[in-house]
């Protein structure tokens, strides 16, 4: 096999890992609360700034900065729910989208005022792995493995804990479950915290791969939404698989044609899916 094609395939899988975590977080929130956090990528951006600040400015060890990022962004998720989403739970969906879209601009604006438009970098990298003629980025591989571990932890939480079961139950039928004793307000709050934690986790993985700037969300936010829809909005497994599919399309498409064309192929594929399976590729 052409080693360069093999490298492109590996890159595609690793790229899928990068997309997977924010897709899981976004899908979890939508599946349970039934609201799209349009500002999800900006929550990730805030988490990236948090890690950058704690590590390079406050001098914290990197693992500690990572550890602090998770509850910080989780708290932001809870704040977002309490201040913005909860008052609009019974409002038309367009109001919810516009409200979380407004938060997107607020977060970008605040980050610009606080950190300026400069690009910030952790300056941390891991040595690449060289297997024959195939190079694999150590940083991306570590991020990929961490993303898999994060996805597994989320699955275990939802599958084996009482709260996780309640979350899944609410996601399945948010009208009936309150009649069975589940408090949806509490579950929404917990789900928002978990969604925020996943955004924080994604921030930890992305901050070692991308520079932080107030508009970094534009790099991965739109494609994250596209993957969610392609996998089936609210469908965790579907979104997870679609992330890898999208990573492979972008990477192999870029290898066979060119980088620009790879995104054209990805979007054409997305449109085709929307025509053929508007409920999402992996929806049951």
């Amino acid at each position: 096999m052409d080693p360069f094609l093999l490298e492109a395939l590996v890159n595609g899988v690793l790229l899928g890992g990068v997309f997977a975590l924010p897709v899981l977080g976004l899908n979890l929130v939508f599946g349970v609360v039934d609201v799209i956090w349009l500002c999800y990528a900006e929550l990730v951006m805030v988490g990236m700034y948090a890690v950058w600040f704690l590590y390079t400015q406050a001098g914290w060890p990197l693992p500690l900065a990572f550890a602090a990022c998770l509850p910080f962004v989780a708290a932001l998720g809870v704040l977002l729910h309490v201040l913005v989403v909860r008052p609009l739970l019974r409002a038309p969906p367009i109001n919810q989208v516009l409200a979380t879209g407004g938060v997107l601009f607020v977060l970008q604006g605040v980050a610009t005022l606080v950190f300026s438009t400069d690009f910030r970098s952790l300056g941390v990298e891991m040595p690449p792995m060289e297997v024959g003629e195939v190079f694999v980025s150590g940083t991306k591989l570590a991020a990929f493995l961490a993303a898999l571990a994060g996805a597994a932890a989320l699955w275990a939480f939802l599958k084996f804990t009482y709260v996780g079961t309640a979350i899944r139950a609410i996601a399945r039928d948010r009208e009936v479950m309150p009649l069975m004793g589940v408090d949806p307000r509490r579950i929404y709050l917990i789900t928002s915290a978990v969604g925020g934690t996943l955004a924080g986790f994604a921030a930890c993985l992305l901050v070692v791969q991308l520079d932080v700037h107030p508009f970094v969300g534009l790099s991965f936010g739109p494609i994250t939404f596209m993957i969610c829809v392609m996998g089936g909005l609210g469908n965790m497994l579907g979104g997870f698989l679609a992330a890898f599919l999208m990573g492979l399309i972008v990477s192999v498409g870029g290898f066979w044609w060119n980088t620009e064309m790879s995104y054209v192929v990805a979007f054409v594929f997305f449109i085709a899916v929307m025509f053929l399976r508007p409920q999402g590729l992996f929806a049951r």
Binding site: K140, L218, S219, I223, V250, T259, Y263
Partner: peptide, 11 residues
């Protein structure tokens, strides 16, 4: 605004 350029590097 591409999130990844690793395939370009490979090429």
């Amino acid at each position: 605004s591409a999130p990844d350029l690793s395939t370009l590097v490979t090429k």
